[in-house]
């Protein structure tokens, strides 16, 4: 199918700003779903609050637009009660790692079969350009007029440490790679995290003089490099892209099925 067949077309054009990377992530996610051949009725997209969260309203799946930071907690309830469904949770910086940080690490720890997409634009867009826990030091934001002093989380390292069994990173520039990583993440049995660096030309770009959307997206080509590449070896300051973690560990819902079996055996005994 065309990716336009997976969206609720009556809401287009969407509300994101011109050049916003979130639209590219939506675009790539739909390609991934299409290439995997998933049925619309089998997918639940759960989102929180913010620019990123509006993604749920646009996709023609079962969609749950929830509270700021709580998307993974809602998704956990959906998944554990209906494990056969495919859960995809797109989140912004705040949803995933500020207000929602606790849910993020615990979902990873449980290894519940949910695909978490961290749409990292290093800024809070919906509220007008405040810094986020992914901004990092030295950037300009409306709440950092003298530049940020807050260090940022490394999403990949955090997810790895918390126990996510699939962890990957890409950017909106690397669309084919993103589609591939999303396909692998969705197919992975367990908690999968895909961090996608995405441009916010309106707030981050303007404030930090990174130019228009096209310039911002092209920058990802120069500041990142594939894991294992010569470029990364020569310049470790580049942000690595690719798959960082892909391991097997008991998935939470499957483990709970065993709890049910044990409980029934004890009751019968």
């Amino acid at each position: 199918m065309a990716i336009q067949d997976y969206i609720r077309q009556r809401f287009f054009p969407h509300l994101w700003c011109p050049g916003c990377g979130h639209g590219i992530i939506l675009n790539n996610l739909l390609h991934a779903v299409d290439e995997l051949g998933l049925a619309k009725n089998d997918i639940v997209v759960t989102s929180g609050i913010g620019c990123s969260a509006r993604i749920s309203g646009y996709v023609d799946f079962h969609t749950l637009h929830t509270l700021h930071g709580r998307a993974l907690a809602f998704a956990t309830g959906v998944k554990l009660s209906r494990p056969e469904l495919t859960l995809i949770v797109p989140m912004g910086d705040g949803d995933a790692l500020a207000i929602g940080g606790n849910h993020f690490i615990h979902a990873a720890r449980r290894n519940i079969d949910i695909t978490a997409i961290v749409m990292n634009n290093r800024i809070y867009g919906m509220t007008g350009g405040q810094f986020s826990p992914l901004s990092g030091p030295g950037i300009l934001a409306t709440t950092a007029p003298y530049r940020t002093i807050d260090p940022n989380f490394d999403v990949v390292e955090l997810a790895r440490a918390a126990g996510a069994t699939f962890v990957a990173r890409s950017t909106t520039y690397h669309a084919l790679e993103t589609i591939d990583l999303l396909k692998r993440a969705i197919s992975h049995k367990g908690f999968a995290v895909v961090e996608i660096l995405t441009q916010c030309p309106t707030y981050y770009g303007r404030k930090n003089k990174e130019g228009e959307a096209a310039e911002m997206i092209e920058r990802y080509k120069h500041i990142t490099a594939k894991i294992g590449s010569k470029a990364l070896e020569e310049n470790p300051a580049l942000i690595p892209r690719g798959v960082f973690v892909e391991v097997g560990r008991p998935e939470y819902c499957e483990a709970y099925e065993e709890v049910i079996v044990r409980a029934r055996q004890e009751v019968a005994a």
Binding site: A2, I3, F12, N27
Partner: peptide
Amino acid sequence: CELRCPDLAIT
């Protein structure tokens, strides 16, 4: 162009 279009406008 299609895969990087934020507006899903290009096929």
